[in-house]
């Protein structure tokens, strides 16, 4: 066991864990930030996506010992109050079915929009390829990203 002081959602958090513990389990079990989801453990589903210094990262494949002072942002820290344009678009369009993968989808999409505020359909498909949605809400995820980017206005295709 070793102590690690992490910068999570702007706060300094110290944990005492095995050095090979994936950041995902530190967030979930030690810091009670359960919005970061366990889906596959091998970086193939994207449900565990967080930002490390702004870069979308699979936290299930990131050992806590490699995080250092990098800024970790989880879905809980994406906005203080659920007001990120993607969070609002997801509610406006009623994107989720089961909802389990959606924090990871939103974190990947947030990184995309920061890099590329007006993505094309191809840009969106390329960026989101690593995030599985077993309920297959892909059409509304696409629409949610476009709505958050201001490329469309809300309307048909979601819930109010």
């Amino acid at each position: 066991m070793s102590k690690y002081t992490l910068n999570v959602n702007g706060q300094s958090r110290t944990v005492d864990v095995a050095s090979d513990t994936p950041l995902m389990w530190v967030l979930r079990d030690n810091l009670d930030l359960v919005g970061t989801k366990f889906g596959c453990g091998v970086g193939k589903c994207g449900a565990c996506t967080v930002h490390l210094n702004g870069v979308p990262t699979r936290s299930c494949m990131t050992s806590v010992s490699t995080v250092g002072r990098k800024a970790v942002v989880t879905i809980e820290g994406l906005s203080a109050d659920g007001s990120h344009p993607l969070q609002q678009a997801w509610c406006e369009l009623d994107v989720a079915q089961c909802g389990y993968c959606q924090p990871g989808q939103i974190m990947t999409a947030a990184a995309l929009l920061k890099e590329n505020p007006k993505p094309t359909d191809q840009d969106i498909d390329d960026a989101m390829d690593g995030n599985l949605c077993r309920c297959a809400t892909y059409l509304r995820i696409r629409a949610g990203i476009k709505l958050a980017a201001g490329l469309t206005t809300a309307g048909h295709g979601g819930g109010k």
Partner: peptide
């Protein structure tokens, strides 16, 4: 009519649900 899922706000902010 179109009504958004009642858990949507919790889903998109990562609150415990599952």
């Amino acid at each position: 009519t179109r009504i958004g899922g009642v858990d949507n706000p919790k889903v998109v902010t990562g609150q415990p649900l599952f």
